[in-house]
Design a protein around this nucleic acid. Sequence first.
DNA 1: TGTATTTTATTTGTCGACATAAAATTTGCC
DNA 2: GGCAAATTTTATGTCGACAAATAAAATACA
Lengths: 234, 234
Amino acid sequence: MTKSATTSTPERKRGQGVKFVYEILRDDILNLALPPGSPIDEIQLAERLSMSRTPIREALVRLAGEGLVTTLPNRSTVVSNIDFLNMHQFFDALTLMYRVTTRLAAEYRSDADLAKIRKLQAAFGQAVDDQDALAMISCNREFHAAIAKAGRNPYYTGLFCRLLDEGRRVLRIYYSSFDDHLPRRYVDEHDDIIAAIDARDIEEADRLARQHADQIVLQIQRLIAEDRRQPISL
Amino acid sequence: MTKSATTSTPERKRGQGVKFVYEILRDDILNLALPPGSPIDEIQLAERLSMSRTPIREALVRLAGEGLVTTLPNRSTVVSNIDFLNMHQFFDALTLMYRVTTRLAAEYRSDADLAKIRKLQAAFGQAVDDQDALAMISCNREFHAAIAKAGRNPYYTGLFCRLLDEGRRVLRIYYSSFDDHLPRRYVDEHDDIIAAIDARDIEEADRLARQHADQIVLQIQRLIAEDRRQPISL
DNA sequence: TGTATTTTATTTGTCGACATAAAATTTGCC
DNA sequence: GGCAAATTTTATGTCGACAAATAAAATACA
């Protein structure tokens, strides 16, 4: 069992316990440090983080609400599986959210929003230059999340971030097979999107977002299709 | 403080406690039995339902994840307010989800889905005939939720149901001002939508869903505009 | 030796209690 | 009498422990 490098932090403030374990578990799940299907032992976690089971259970309830873990009644809770069979619906929702959030960003962005988006795009470009696939995945998520926030619709932002996180897990599985000319293309597409948002060109932003989404979906589909691993889960 | 008629049910199975209190609180919140801003006293709830605070806290965490309650750190948790200032974003997301879910329902529905949708539409018609505004709101939600489920995209269904629940609260505030010719119109529009889904006419389903959403949004906006109550929240 | 049944053990769901932080109240001072 | 500081009080966040339920192990039996 791969464990994250969570060194003991015995000094914790009151009221931060749930948030603490929630973020650790969430990161481990999205980074696949806890792969899908992994059982989560409350007692083990409790003594590893040197805290009671109560805040851990509350964090698990929260994660279950986001669909990241699945609670079997009277049984162990496990990290939710990635549903490769219903991937089509995931792609459909992802594409729509790409488009809608980018549209709204072009309409409602402030200058501060734009500055933040550009900063995150720079970080993404750096990750591409470094050939750091993990950083690329993370920066890409932050970039699009910032665009969504600039659109100022919390309902879209919430769903979109959930989809981006789920996509982070999927990409993480295949990150080793990234070519380096593909990320470069993504950087250019991001730049075009930023330009459209800057110019407040809603239709162009929509078109670019759709194109970008199609690119990513195609990429993931190709990776899945190329996957030669036996699809037998343990 | 208005309390729901939750008579004591001392016989409860193990593992049903959280779900039990979750559903009670959820219903009370959506029915406005617990109006926005109401503090939720864990101890009071615990002795009222004759159970410990632990399952109640877990239910509150779940509700907080859905945005129905807001947890103030080291302070009481309160029922989330309805954000009338950002209602525009709510309407935008609601309209889009109406359209997308109805489109997908026209594409992927099974005959069983259609039968269920028709059954719920009958219930809605009955509620309109009975002039039962509460039942109308509830049946309307179930009707559209069934359409979303027929579309078979859990991401859309999840967001849409959240929006419908939020709308249930908003409508509940103004339910007294319902004219009776408006609901009749909704019944007809529902029938048209069913016909389009039945015929698998995606574009027509989209058009009707958009029209239906616009109607509802207009209705709610008019109710809000007509509201003469002092907008001072004690 | 294989299967069914009982026993053990592990883990979850729930409970009552303590400690801490914020609110309410009282006290002290001008 | 009014305002500020100290105190009490109330409610949250966390803890350790018990009970039920499931899984695993051991035993009995054909």
